[in-house]
Simulated scan of single mutants.
Amino acid sequence: MKRLLAAAVATATLLLFPQPAHAADTSYRTLSGAHHPDWMAGVPAATSLAALSIPGTHETMSIHGGDYTQTQENFGDSGGTLTAQLNAGIRAIDIRARINDGNTFTIHHGAVYQVANFDDVLNRLSAFLTAHPGETVLLRFKHECTGETGSCSDATGQRSFPDIFDSYVAARPGLFWTPSVTRSSAAAVPTLGAVRGKVVLAVLNGPRGGRFADYGLAQFSGWADGSSTYVQDRYNVPTFAQIADKRTAVNNFLATTNTGDPGRIHVNFTSGSGALAPPYWVAGGALFQQGVNPYLLGRLNAGSFTRTGVMMLDFPGGGLINKIISYN
């Protein structure tokens, strides 16, 4: 009881007197400290995506909206932030969209428009993969709007989310790995050689996490809101006192990744937030709690794992990206 009371008092103090962002270090808010535009090019073509250790970003485009909405360093609107991440070595992205007038998608985090459209995302991906054909990018794409308080509402009178998505795919032949964007048949996990120069759709999620049709990879049929067999996404971190629980969830799933089915991609979200724990506290730390990012870098430096799986990060640091890639 005393510990909970102390945590509550400390949290209230932090909220009454807002804290600056935790100091940047090699694990946190130093994306530009990594530069790996061609790291996959040196990986053998026969390597399964499941065998790779892949740095990724949660809410990849979320750079606006304040402390409770921003999850990434701001390198520019209209997809500038995405390009910076790709050049740093990020190869798994998490994109959230609203249905807009004209049967188009705009990029949102909840109610906040992130000053980018889906065409911006696809333009950046196409330009990067054209310049770096040895690479691939794994995409989690989610319909963001629930129409509830704190979320966005879709424009009325538009086509369905999957139908609009199909129109984007059709307008860019060759950008997506076709088996992953076929509505009627989910795909097996490919080798890197089969998808070089392509975007691989991992899953197409509804606004509450349910999966649309058979888009994406078959192994993610159970990917819903939060965690599932191959996904750790314990995103609810009510206060900074629960950052320790998030660290434990990340560490436990790293163990699962290393002892689980080697033919399956494991996706480990390091992100989290709550009413008394904005994303930057969870990532970088707050008061006496170590952030998930420095904790993760320490665990990876300990060398007790053989692969990391896909790590979906908030505010990644260059050293953390470097370390994940080094596992390949």
Rank of each mutant, 00 (worst) to 15 (best):
G226C: 10
F17V: 09
G89W: 08
R98Q: 14
G272R: 05
L313I: 06
K323M: 01
Q232Y: 00
G147N: 11
T71I: 00
R247G: 03
A111Q: 12
S227R: 08
H35C: 02
T182N: 14
A224D: 15
G65C: 12
D314A: 10
Y215C: 01
A170K: 15
S53P: 07
I63T: 15
S126Y: 01
T257N: 09
A249R: 03
N293Y: 04
V203C: 02
A302E: 11
R264L: 00
H35S: 13
H36W: 10
L175M: 09
E73F: 05
I324E: 01
S62F: 05
T308P: 05
T306W: 00
I63C: 12
T57H: 04
G209D: 06
E135W: 00
T106P: 00
A241F: 04
I99G: 07
Y327W: 13
P179L: 09
E73V: 05
G303R: 03
T11E: 08
N205S: 15
Y113F: 14
N258Q: 05
R124S: 12
T149R: 13
T11M: 07
L313Y: 05
V137G: 04
P279G: 08
V121G: 08
A218M: 05
L86M: 13
W281L: 03
D101V: 12
H36F: 14
G157N: 09
F253C: 02
A224N: 15
A275G: 14
D166A: 14
G309K: 00
H22P: 10
V137L: 09
L217D: 13
G263C: 01
A241N: 11
I321N: 00
W223E: 09
G147S: 11
D233E: 12
T259D: 11
L138D: 01
P44T: 11
T191G: 09
D38R: 12
D261C: 10
P55F: 07
I54Q: 02
F161S: 03
Q290C: 06
F176C: 10
I63E: 08
S160E: 09
D163Y: 07
M1Q: 08
M1N: 10
E148W: 10
R140L: 12
N251F: 00
H36N: 15
D119I: 03
D163P: 04
N251I: 02
S273R: 10
S78G: 02
R183I: 02
S185D: 06
F161N: 03
I321T: 00
N268S: 04
S180T: 15
G317T: 03
D154A: 04
A218L: 13
Q290E: 14
V310W: 11
S271E: 13
T81W: 06
G285P: 08
L192T: 02
W39T: 10
A45N: 12
V181N: 11
F240W: 10
G216H: 14
N103P: 08
G79I: 03
P37Y: 07
G298E: 01
A45P: 04
V9Y: 12
S271W: 07
V250G: 03
M40P: 07
G226L: 11
V112I: 14
S271T: 10
G150D: 12
Q158T: 12
M1K: 09
G319L: 07
S180C: 13
N123Q: 12
L52H: 01
A202H: 01
R307K: 15
D38E: 14
S304G: 14
R234D: 14
H22I: 04
A155Y: 04
L82C: 13
A41D: 13
V137T: 10
H36D: 04
